[in-house]
Amino acid sequence: MSERLDVRKTYKLVINGAFVRSESGRSYEVRHAAGDFWANVAQGSRKDLRDAVRAARAAQAAWWKATAYNRGQVLFRLAEMAEARRDELAAHVAAAEGVDAPSAASSVARGIDRIVWYAGWTDKVAQVLGGANPVAGPFFNFSLPVPSGVIGVLAPQDSSFEGFVDTVLAPLATGNAVVAVTSERRPTPALLLAEMSVTSDLPAGVLNVVSGLTGELGPTLASHEDVDGIDLEGAGEHHDELAASAADSIKRVRRASAGDYAESSTSRLRSFVETSTVWHTIGR
């Protein structure tokens, strides 16, 4: 009996809610941690990032203006979809990270739980990070956390699913739109989640996911003037250069951290919110 030939899928980028091959037409091979061929993925270009930032900018205001309850429901829906495709995600994580099946499964489970965690944050952030300020005068004064806007994420290179979830969901939960660059060598778990996001209720453009060479995409994202903040978790050797080029437009920069993608701190949630303080007079 002859072996059936695989139908190989080329993983595409997700930009503005659509699956696109790279504008450049390039793709690259991704291999198992062990070295065998695993998949072809689109190799995003600078222009893909430009399109992604434009889509994110266009989508951000409506995402933020959706009610916090609605944003929570949408993110929870993403968790539901990921849950339904746990095994597939686990197979990708195992291939990408070279871990055994049980470890991959539990990593996926933690990642999905993390989506749920962030889904629950959407309508708590304002209460936890905001509040009323007792100013010494006849004013009603309150502070609210508002999204920074469009956030670039260089997702962790190592943690292909959990790391991607943590770095991307945090800014989404607080109302930002995201342009994420996946792990260069381990992109498929992220691209799978991106696929799910397209068919979930997440509005087009809110999450854009680009795979490719971090060394090529990172500088474009870090220097893009219409990107308000950047998470350099996966920036690797270019980290400090990118941090410097982010300075030109006074971006919010989250530097690479110790790589804990399940910590209970609000640190990541706070990275891309602005405190907006409103004063109003109180008088008859």
Binding site: F139, S276, T277, V278, W279, H280, T281
Partner: peptide, 30 residues
């Protein structure tokens, strides 16, 4: 970062002050 409604240039140690975009980041106060 700060919006004054029917007033302007009010400052208070309990009230966070600071900017967004190229006005900077971080808050002072509160």
């Amino acid at each position: 970062g700060v919006i004054w409604a029917n007033t302007y240039n009010r400052f208070d140690p309990t009230s966070p002050f600071g900017g967004v975009r190229e006005s900077g980041f971080g808050r002072e106060g509160g």
